[in-house]
Design a protein around this nucleic acid. Structure first.
Lengths: 266, 266
DNA sequence: ATACCCTTTGCACAACACGCAACCAATCTG
DNA sequence: CAGATTGGTTGCGTGTTGTGCAAAGGGTAT
């Protein structure tokens, strides 16, 4: 594979400004001018002027009286106003398709929406019998592999604040019934890296899903495959889960790292 | 007041890049190169190189096969990783203080946190008797002025998905008891622009709060004042609510517009 | 096929961002 | 309290770098 790096000249100062933004955003502490100048390998004065420009536009800000930089309100406003719903879909769709083809089963992409999991994309395999779970469908978080993957990092307190005190509705014989059981399940998911659904929501359906994580570990979505238990046998778990986990990891990397300039050949 | 604009030279290309980011973020549609070049008043080629630089860093992206630009994953990742909890506090604190001083009552700043309102900042007036509601406290959304302000734009469906089917807990005689009543209340808040709390959570306490909205209307927080009913009389409602609404509007503007470079004099 | 978009690349000029150095402000040290 | 040290800010000349122009690709409609 030839390293076909498109040689479009960088706009140096813009590039540096973006580096500053990323540095400030990923730092827990306010960032000082010195750190910025060192990071960029430029003179203090240059870093200063870059930072000032960002500040003027509201992308950076300085905490009351202090001189060091934190992210400003523009960054916040922009990300709030923008409709991110198709972001995950965009970067994940290729992988989703690959996953569905590799396993020849329906693959889904889901995010958390309140106390439900929302399927935001799906690729169907060539089977005639297609599983439920169309794009746009809402399913409970506690009774599906996707949902449980999305909950993976939660502790008991968070789970309780999501589901409240009301008892969990039962859909099938295997549906998780209590919060403590769910907590335990989450621990398992964290360890294994993926979640299973043994007909916990719909009878006769199996599903494997894995949380999609950013670099810093936060779960932003889940990916997985589902199929009727008659076709998706227990002995498929090892291989399927491995594929799903790898796929999730890849998507996480795509989200965290700036995307390469990818040339699509016809 | 002398227009003391600090004359720190802009980094032109960085500034232009940021303009592009904002334009793309606020546009509902993907943005074409032509639009960008016209917006900036520069040649197409320049706009192209700026956009490419943004693209390389993942701040912009091009939808599969298309040539026009949408926001990229970096923007998303950054805003996700960053801890925004003190963002509102930072830009709102001045106004909060002004509000508390003007009305000589305790002023609060709150955001939504699940099914609760979270007080993230407060300024106490000089009264000896200080109302409850310290920074960090969680209060129900449906039974406080702050909470109801945060819910202002919700429809019945959303409200139900937040509160579930369990009955609303009653705290006082005036606590709102049902979802339909809450829906009606929200309509009123939208019309008036502010929410009232007539001892709905704590006996003998009154509160006025208004939603803080970004330019596009989304509610991101609430600001308000509260005091014992013995001091905060019903006839104060008109003037207090006016102050609160104005304050909320100002904060919303501060959030949406890039902040001016404000020089603090000792 | 031809003509008309729009995006992309090459190139040369000068604008602009850079580093240097000096100037402040604040904290640390003797 | 002086003097030194660190870190932020400003002025200025140089040459790097971003820019406009012009021409070349790619795509779609006529």
């Amino acid at each position: 594979m030839p390293k076909k790096v498109a040689q479009v000249p960088f706009i140096q100062s813009l590039d540096r400004g973006l580096t500053i933004l990323q540095a400030v955003a990923t730092s827990k502490q306010p960032v000082t001018l010195g750190e910025l100048s060192e990071l960029l390998g430029v003179d203090r004065s240059s870093a200063f002027r870059l930072a000032q420009t960002l500040r003027r536009r509201g992308f950076l800000s300085t905490p009351a009286g202090r001189k060091d930089y934190i992210l400003g309100s523009s960054m916040w406003t922009l990300s709030r106003q923008y409709d991110w719903s198709n972001m995950l879909v965009r970067v994940a769709h290729q992988e989703l398709k690959a996953l569905a083809q590799a396993l020849n089963e329906t693959a889904h992409l889901a995010i958390r929406e309140g106390k439900n999991a929302l399927f935001i994309d799906s690729v169907h395999a060539r089977h005639v019998i297609v599983v439920a779970g169309q794009t746009g469908e809402l399913v409970p978080l506690y009774s599906t592999a996707h949902g449980k993957a999305l909950l993976a990092d939660m502790e008991e307190k968070e789970l309780r604040s999501i589901f409240g005190s009301e008892p969990l509705e039962r859909f099938t014989k295997t549906t998780i019934k209590t919060i403590p059981a769910l907590v335990k399940e989450c621990v398992g998911i964290r360890e294994r890296g993926y979640a299973l659904d043994e007909a916990e929501y719909m009878d006769g359906m199996r599903c494997v899903a894995a949380p999609i994580r950013l670099n810093d570990g936060t779960v932003v979505g889940s990916i997985g495959v589902s199929a009727p238990a008659s076709r998706f046998l227990k002995e498929h778990y090892p291989s399927h889960s491995k594929s799903v986990v790898q796929c999730a990891r890849k998507i996480g990397a795509l989200l965290s790292v700036a995307e390469e300039i990818t040339e699509q050949t016809a």
